[in-house]
Design a protein around this nucleic acid. Structure first.
Lengths: 328, 328
DNA sequence: TCTGATTATGAAAACGATTTCATGAATTCG
DNA sequence: CGAATTCATGAAATCGTTTTCATAATCAGA
């Protein structure tokens, strides 16, 4: 492997000058620039990035926390982030936390050991106080999740508003017996807020909720099947169900269909996210502008890295949109 | 930021000894080990990874090429790879090539500039000769894709066999007019082989194929809709259709359903991959053992990195399995 | 007790870039 | 024309580790 020294020798110049050419510093004559460029080509030289990182004290790499990349919501988020990062010359390191506190903490070492310039969190299980001390090692941006105590920028959606929007839609369609079927990470602000919005919409309409119409721990299509089973076995059944994701909604819809039910006549269903799956299954859903939050979060991150200033608390809240289809 | 020097000073020892403790080298007395450990804790010290990389000439990072992470097949592949890599102390850098030759070439610099120890390719657009010269910078492993000229290990599935299996199943069900609906990357060996297997099955059964029953460039659910439209407008329509992915199959199934067709009576459909989507839509499909190929590819990679030996050509070919559901 | 291995430690040399500082040459300006 | 800038270059310091080499102390075997 050729080093900058070799190039310097071949060009009959100093390392310094070569470095200047590489980094496009001023004060190099065209003549020498040509010499250097030629030497670099002949030797097939490329600067060693470890050396560069060490000297520059930056890595041009950003870590992104997601629970699982196979979750379409997060893979969409990551797709957009990677595109945006690449555009600005950054790489992405993928950290799958699997909703595990310990995994989350493990990956924090990446920041401390200077393997990455910054961290984007799209999912938070730990208390913010776990992250706080790491702020001295580099910027952190929260995307999608949020925490009241986090002293960093958060780009997210007002989940209260989102679930309110969806629930209100069900109410407007005339349903008064509405089930609620979502995940239920205790630590997740998202779940909490969704529930608040849901209850708020019911409350405003003066609609009552029954304890048995809450179905928790539903994340996947499979969970949707299970939820439907529980729902269908009730004596007093809801006419409509609000869900926390398109997968769950799809699972319920499929199970209902298999059981010979008609959607929305026998059971109205509303999803969340507007994934391709929702279009496929003709599900009404609450759309999250994933592209936008991903881009904004990445931009904030790159700005922070380049400004070399610590980020302060800031909230970017983006709106939801209802996508009406035939399931409601 | 504390450095190894600070730790050494605090412990009253040399950098060398501290480094020995960090790296668990022999020949350090328990006494000193304790002193060092304590100093490290007090200073909240963590070794700087850029420095370490520079000195060690390795990065503990692996780049994974995928076309798009939102494609469920690839996100599944990446999920398993990341898990496996993390287990062995490696990180993953995500490279989305978007089926673009240029993107693929751009990311190659990661290997050359020593930002990663190795490369796993799950999708290849460029001719192998583009990759060849980079082998001197680190190991490359091909996973899922393959190339006859690639002088590296390839872990993949015999696509000829896979499509043969699916097609044979359709034939066994009594269908004689069978459509073929897949993507069609000219450069992709996968597409080529799928077609070979398909034609082989027809040939063996003495079944004729019509030019108008080929539907190309189908990758997504949307494309499935479009393909159905074309298919439904034919005078002489196929009774069954072989597809290159569950998404496409799902799109066709949905469009057929919307058009009032019955599946499989009016049109039988077979997917490819066995994604959750296939279960949801009750699609018969050809299952690819994604977990297995991902793990094997990652293991080969880590072995190669640690053995510091160049990898030679080698083929690991894994079997498919047919998953029968109600769409055929 | 002497010799040769083993154990324990540190000084200094890598690793391969970038950046600071010093030094001349060329240019501009009053 | 002399002083002050600006331009162009290189030597050497620096980033923070790990590794090599040298040296001393301890231990085992004859």
């Amino acid at each position: 492997m050729a080093t900058i020294q070799d190039v310097a020798k071949k060009a009959g110049l100093s390392r310094t000058t070569v470095s200047r050419v590489i980094n496009e510093h001023p004060y190099v004559t065209e003549e020498k620039k040509r010499l250097v460029t030629q030497a670099m080509q002949e030797l097939n030289y490329v600067p060693n990035s470890s050396a560069r990182r060490l000297r520059r004290q930056q890595t041009e790499t950003i870590a992104v926390y997601v629970p699982r990349i196979t979750n379409p919501f997060f893979s969409h988020l990551v797709e957009v982030m990677e595109k945006e990062a690449a555009k600005k010359g950054y790489q992405l390191i993928l950290c799958q936390t699997r909703y595990k506190k310990e995994q989350e903490r493990n990956f924090l070492e990446l920041l401390k050991t200077k393997q990455v310039d910054g961290l984007i969190l799209t999912s938070i299980e730990n208390d913010w106080s776990e992250f706080e001390p790491y702020l001295s090692f580099g910027p952190i941006v929260v995307c999608n999740e949020y925490s009241d105590s986090a002293q960093v920028p958060s780009v997210y959606l007002n989940q209260i508003e989102g679930s309110y929007l969806g629930t209100k839609h069900l109410i407007d369609q005339g349903y008064t017996k509405i089930g609620y079927c979502t995940g239920n990470h205790k630590s997740s602000r998202v779940s909490k807020d969704r529930k608040i919005g849901f209850l708020q919409a019911l409350d405003e309409a003066g609609i009552m909720m029954k304890e048995e119409w809450f179905f928790y721990n539903a994340y996947s299509v499979q969970d949707g099947f299970a939820s439907f089973k529980k729902l269908s076995e009730l004596d007093d059944r809801p006419q409509a169900v609000f869900t926390g994701s398109d997968e769950v909604a799809a699972g319920i819809a499929k199970a209902a269909f298999d059981a010979g039910w008609k959607v929305p006549e026998d059971l109205a269903i509303i999803g969340f996210d507007n994934q391709p799956l929702a279009a496929l299954m003709d599900l009404t859903t609450v759309e999250q502008p994933i592209d936008t939050i991903a881009k904004q979060a990445m931009n904030l991150m790159v700005e922070a890295i380049q400004a070399k200033k610590p980020l302060s608390r800031k909230e970017v809240i983006l709106p939801f949109q209802l996508v009406k289809r035939s399931s409601t």
